[in-house]
Amino acid sequence: MIFNQKITSLHLDVLKEIGNIGAAHAATALSNLLGKKIDMRVPKVEMVSFNDMMELAGGSENVVVGIYLRIEGDAEGSMFFILPIEQANRFIRRLIYDESFDFKKQPVSELGLSAMQEMGNILSGSYLSALSDFTNLKIYPTVPGLSVDMFGAIISIGLIELSHISDNVIVINTSIFEDGAEDQETVKGHFFLLPDPDSFDAIFKALGVS
């Protein structure tokens, strides 16, 4: 169990590289899907408290579009793709050629929801297959779930496994943004990978760091 003490900067670099490779593939997939350039930031790997985790995407009450899936197999964990509502609206409008689409307008159009679900499928699939190729670990994603709700309510499901043994979480956080967006400084989306505590050993071992 490496969870609290034995994490070295080498371990952090390995986790960063996972975030880098996974998110780069996902950003490319998103870019192909939308026909638009998508840029990403250098991944951040942090150990944060549950409450600080809430601040990574605008606070626990901030309403976001969230895609969530579980990873099972040689390494297990939770993965989230989080978009601010406005950004998700822009992506989906572009995908389904419907400028009036809005996640805030009830009831949300089925076509839009299903497009979002499919986008989640494609992005998380590319992230995880890149991760699997890189580590040679066999990992299987569950079918992603979609929720438009408060960030805290969405992310807390990913903290459940961890919370049995810790009050902190190691999060691999990669931000993406749309190239040419009006405000380049604002992060437009996040991939959060939260490996289960017992899976860190498998990941490090697979990459020759123990």
Binding site: M54, G59, E61, D149, M150, G152, A153, S156, I157, I160
Partner: peptide
């Protein structure tokens, strides 16, 4: 005072 907690999901 009042007391509040935000973003309850499964909690």
């Amino acid at each position: 005072n009042t007391i509040r907690t935000s973003g309850l999901g499964s909690c």
